[in-house]
Amino acid sequence: MLQTESEFIRVLKDRLEGTLDPAELDDIISDYAEHFRIGKESGRTDEELFGSLGSPDDIAREIRAMHLVKRAESNRSCKNIFHAVVATLGLGLFNLVVVLAPFLLLILMLFVVLMVGVVFTLVGPVSLLYAILQIAGLPAHAIWLNPVAGFFIATGITTLGLLMLIGDYYLARFFYRAGIRYLKWNISVITGTEENP
């Protein structure tokens, strides 16, 4: 149980150190100090102020999650989106369902498309080579029922593989942006700062 304003500020600072830039951390700490100062000037007690603000641990988690989501938005990388998702998960058990499950499904889908694309891109040229060998009359390499058809199908498999790789890249970009927006919306709902459309 927190007893004083300085204890509240210390806990908040401890939780956010290492995540936020020192300048940004100082801004946040000074905002909360200002909040306490104004509250006390208006005659409110520490207990009342603690009650209105909530736990510094919860506040730190929300600030951290929003900070990491914004960082993932401005600096796109797998590591950043992963950190943002993990930080958002820490906001509540409910997020295991509404954040982690969709996130894992998306990762799985992108991975499957990537793998299929890689396999097609590799298998296509090999089967194309087999078709050419078969057309050239090397029966030991016969894998196609019809080598001429095989030539075209192998070409199609190769280009389809390349398209899947390109498509996977654009899908990843699309889902990255959509994911950031979803995480922001999720945080705003949890923290009660959701804006009405």
Partner: peptide
């Protein structure tokens, strides 16, 4: 290329 290749291949 993909569409035409598959169309020709499977057409054959």
């Amino acid at each position: 290329i993909t569409v035409v290749s598959f169309a020709i291949g499977f057409g054959i």
